[in-house]
């Protein structure tokens, strides 16, 4: 059995709620961004730049990045604790699982910082 010390909300119900709340944010963001791209064929740099750097899109993108971080953590945590277990991977499972979770956490952090740098500048 895998204990839940590395889970985001520390129990299944919190994780469930976090997963759903962030999913809605990400879903709405995806639809908004795709609608803009589909309704603007042959998009110019000026228009794209103006759209993405508007206050509303900067905040929305930041919200999406943070939601992605939490959403991906809950999802990847679930996958890692379902498949990288002692039963399936043997004695090395805990090391492998924590390593996988570490890579995921690091990559998530890079995504958030990278995204913030692009949209807010430093």
């Amino acid at each position: 059995m895998v204990t839940s010390v590395t889970s985001l909300g520390k129990n299944g119900l919190y994780d469930w709620v976090i997963q759903r709340g962030t999913a809605v944010v990400l879903g709405v963001y995806f639809v908004c961004l795709m609608s803009f791209l589909i309704t603007n064929p042959d998009l110019s740099y000026a228009k794209w730049h103006a759209y993405m750097t508007s206050g509303y899109m900067r905040v929305f993108t930041l919200l999406a990045l943070l939601s992605m971080a939490a959403h991906a953590w809950v999802g990847l945590w679930t996958i890692s604790t379902d498949y990288i277990t002692t039963r399936q991977m043997g004695a090395m499972a805990t090391v492998l699982r924590v390593a996988f979770q570490g890579v995921c956490a690091l990559l998530t952090l890079v995504y958030v910082i990278w995204g913030v740098q692009i949209l807010w500048g430093i």
């Binding site: 740099y45 794209w48 730049h49 993405m52 750097t53 992605m68 991906a72 999802g75 990847l76 996958i79 995921c104 990559l107 995504y111 990278w114 995204g115 692009i118 949209l119």
Partner: peptide, 20 residues
């Protein structure tokens, strides 16, 4: 698909940076 797009996001953020 969730696992795959988690790694795919790297391409998207790179593209976002290049586009802006």
């Amino acid at each position: 698909s969730g696992l795959a797009i988690f790694f795919g996001i790297a391409f998207l953020i790179w593209g976002l940076g290049a586009s802006l």
